[in-house]
Write a protein that binds this DNA or RNA. Structure first.
Lengths: 142, 142
DNA sequence: AAAACAGATTATAATAGTTCTAGACTATTG
DNA sequence: CAATAGTCTAGAACTATTATAATCTGTTTT
């Protein structure tokens, strides 16, 4: 956290992606603010606001390259919009239906058990849990 | 299952939707073949193939009305395409990444435990589990 | 360090899925 | 059977995303 530029550079090197101006800037926007869930247009807006000249097409390209390199995870919850999650460790999500926001649930706080083997063959690559939350008095201890 | 038309009619009545030609036909296509996962365009194609004149706009309207009435459930897994699930009981899904197909997992065969309360308030409306399956020798007992 | 090359970036066009619109149609009601 | 409230339709519009083809930039070679 003391040498952010170096971190982004290492990240790209490890992913075997050329450290271009745009990729470095996007990497910094993505990974220097802790865990985030961003949509492509959102990130594009942030980049422009940060005086980084980058096209939307490049933002998409870069996000997909990062996903391919295991630096990001794509989260699909809403039809018509993908979110990219900077947390690639095993975890799940709360989805707030009214605001459209996501929030991580640590992987070890939820347990999914008794998943049967896929009936049509193949192997399990990942188990995604989405907890849909609706606005309502939380009504905790009933 | 002996009087399909009557079933579709009852369904629409219960949902307080006028039993129009189009809605009846779509209801029959959806609910007379057991549990299914259909996309809008798919259903539209089936309707046309079955000589039911219906526009794509009406298919979308109807699907959403059915979701609103609790007859269908919308499942979002792929960016850019929604599936509508005729099984509205508590259950989860296998998603076959290569074919894009969905398959139900009975709700009682999976257990999700220790879900923490939503940190930002609100109440849990539903917990969706998607088991992503990739094509590969299942390689069971390792 | 210049030249050459591979790869990246860009603006723009194209695409896919979905939603909107305004007018025509139809099931219900009196 | 006329009125009306709700439904259907073709087509346009919209949103997010992907493709294209030309230009540019980082790296490698000389």
């Amino acid at each position: 956290m003391t040498r952010p530029f170096a971190n982004a550079l290492e990240l790209l090197r490890a992913a075997r992606l050329r450290p271009t101006r745009q990729r470095l800037a996007l990497a910094r926007l993505l990974f220097e603010k802790g865990d985030r869930h961003v949509a492509a247009e959102e990130l594009h807006g942030e980049a422009l606001a940060a005086q980084v000249p980058v096209s939307l097409a490049t933002v998409y390209n870069t996000l997909h390259q990062f996903v391919g390199a295991g630096l990001l995870r794509e989260v699909v919850i809403n039809p018509g919009r993908s979110y990219f999650d900077t947390n690639v460790s095993d975890h799940h999500h709360f989805f707030y239906e009214d605001s459209g926001k996501l929030r991580d649930i640590p992987g070890d706080s939820i347990a999914v058990t008794n998943v049967p083997p896929p009936p049509d063959g193949g192997s399990i690559r990942r188990v995604d849990v989405v907890v849909r939350v609706e606005k309502a008095a939380s009504k905790a201890r009933s």
